[in-house]
């Protein structure tokens, strides 16, 4: 189980997110991504396998792999929305843009050589790609749930940066991030639920009826 392999699967999950047409599939894919990222610090070999890293990894695996997907599925069920993604930009178009984003990320990875070693460029590339994918999902999808998913994917990207590229990232920052996300998912879940209650749908583009 090498780092390269895990990261490659992460890239594939990102592409899957861009091309998937079902919300359930998206949530499951994000869950899978979370699980993979939990494995990442364990796969880096001796360099990072200290106790706190292991605890952190297991914690994030549980959270991202099981808790968040459960929460999101719960929100999905509660909100009684259809299971279609309803994109602003079509699936093929999204995948094409994904291809360009991957290319750009690789190019950036080549430039941003962190710590002076070149074998990290794939790590940086995948991290950038995840962040870009998350941003894209937030921008290009209608459903509020997708905003949450995009946010999660973005966080995953930052996490890859932390694990792969900057060995000495403080535990506190990491924990803070995780907490941030947890709160975000929680709030979003409740918000999604309430938006649904008030307006009987949860498409963010209809929030503009609230304008004065």
């Amino acid at each position: 189980m090498s780092v390269e392999l895990i990261l490659t699967v992460v890239v594939l999950t990102n592409l899957r997110l861009l091309g998937a047409s079902r919300l359930g599939a998206c949530i499951r894919t994000v869950g899978l991504q979370g699980l993979l990222l939990g494995l990442l610090p364990l796969a880096t070999g001796g360099r990072l396998t200290t106790l706190h890293v292991v605890v952190l990894a297991v914690g994030s695996m549980v959270l991202k792999g099981f808790v968040f997907p459960r929460l999101l599925f719960w929100a999905l069920r509660e909100a009684h929305v259809t299971r279609e993604v309803e994109p602003f930009i079509g699936y093929t178009g999204s995948l094409l843009i994904g291809g360009f984003m991957l290319g750009g990320a690789v190019w950036l990875g080549d430039r941003l050589v962190i710590g002076g070693t070149t074998d990290l460029s794939w790590v940086v590339a995948v991290a950038m790609f995840s962040i870009l994918t998350g941003l894209f999902l937030i921008v290009a999808r209608k459903r509020a749930i997708h905003q949450v998913l995009g946010f999660l994917v973005m966080e995953n990207g930052i996490y890859i940066f932390g694990i792969g590229a900057i060995p000495g990232i403080p535990l506190l920052v990491e924990l803070g991030l995780l907490l941030d996300i947890f709160v975000a998912v929680f709030v979003m879940g409740i918000a999604v639920y309430h938006i649904n209650r008030e307006f009987d749908h949860m498409e963010t583009d209809k929030l503009d009826v609230l304008r004065g």
Partner: peptide, 20 residues
């Protein structure tokens, strides 16, 4: 066509690994 493009995408990712 989606399957085929997806298949091509796998190798595109492989090429990205070699390029990075």
């Amino acid at each position: 066509p989606q399957l085929l493009v997806g298949g091509a995408a796998l190798s595109a990712v492989a090429l990205m690994i070699t390029l990075s």
